[in-house]
Design a protein around this nucleic acid. Structure first.
Lengths: 199, 199
DNA sequence: AGATAACGTGAATGATAATTCACGAGTTGC
DNA sequence: GCAACTCGTGAATTATCATTCACGTTATCT
């Protein structure tokens, strides 16, 4: 049931796992609570399904960008632009992503991390390893580390355009206007990364 | 009451705001629940006090490093080393910090962000502005942005040595050993930042 | 010592919200 | 038409805490 999952994602993003109410989710989806329990074991199970679904959608959006062979520079530019656009367009997905890093999801941390981060880590590492080999990158350290730092920056960027706290934080660092000019932030970010790469 | 607050910090770090139980906190502190309500309005009030207290301790640890005038390079090295050490030594403080970025603290996001991020943002911006003026830094973009990206990296580094999910994530990116060799990670991180700065 | 106040206690209360289940309503097959 | 079955309903049940408060216990003062 599509409607149900969308309702769940909205509710969980708005209230977090613990404060989300199953009855409110049912209302949002215009079904009765019972239905949720026909499809899912319990609240946790449903939450994980919502998270899974969100991440799948994010992955889809990213895949097209990443696959794009060729120019490292273009690839990064595309990546950053897509990321910011997605974060502004579907903040709920990213809020859920942030939610799983919090205390209420401790139980699932390991499994979820493996599931979510494995592919990105491989892709980025490969990207930078190649760039190093071909001498297109000044930074000569471990490409795994490079991938880690790069993804750290991307993650923070996503959160900064979707999660309440990180939004406020970005405004403090960069000024109130930045919120409404995501493209500018994107450009500066790309410039920053290029400096590191030495392109 | 010192013991009470320590118990609170541990409990909130372990379970998150919503799943923490006041009765368990009382047990940990070896007092009865009633006592907590003699000192604090309600659970939220107590939680905020714990967060406040954690952040104060972190600030204290950082202040000494930041104040240290002179060499930008040394300053950054010190900063990174201190940060990693603190994150490993007092993970609970950082877990609480991460907790306030999650859904359960939405209400307080704006206020907390202002309180926590304002000083760091000023310090870093100033640091980089000076470095630019004195020609010790290759990156010539907006120093505010620079400060933002830099703090993003630091934040992720802190979380990566304290919060469950981020720990798992780091292991996926960098290998299982990294957890037990934080110094190495620190060195690589410093090298990475220096590349950006062009020192 | 006795009075008074300050401090602490933890069982009782109440609210919230997850989960269940006895019951329709609609659908399919014969 | 009528079983048998699927799908959905939402009031009732239940568990979990946050919060309160009537009652001890200890400390202070005279």
């Amino acid at each position: 049931m599509q409607r149900l999952m969308e309702a769940g994602i909205e509710e969980f993003a708005e209230y977090g796992l613990d404060r989300a109410a199953m009855s409110r989710i049912a209302d949002r989806a215009k079904v009765s609570v019972g239905v949720i329990y026909k499809y899912y074991e319990d609240k946790d199970d449903f939450f994980l399904a919502c998270v899974q679904h969100s991440l799948k959608l994010l992955e889809n959006a990213m895949e097209q960008v990443i696959v794009m062979e060729g120019n490292l520079e273009n690839c990064i530019e595309n990546l950053v632009h897509t990321l910011i656009r997605e974060a502004k367009e579907h903040p709920a997905y990213y809020v859920l992503y942030n939610e799983i890093t919090s205390g209420s999801c401790k139980k699932y941390a390991k499994e979820l991390a493996k599931q979510i981060e494995s592919s990105a880590s491989k892709v980025y590492e490969e990207l930078f390893r190649k760039a190093q080999e071909e001498g297109r990158m000044a930074y000569q350290g471990d490409s795994k580390m490079m991938a880690f730092f790069f993804d750290n920056l991307l993650m923070m960027l996503q959160f900064s355009f979707s999660c309440q706290y990180y939004k406020e934080r970005m405004k403090i660092f960069c000024g109130d206007e930045v919120e409404h000019h995501p493209e500018e932030m994107g450009e500066v970010f790309i410039g920053f990364v290029k400096t590191v790469l030495g392109v």
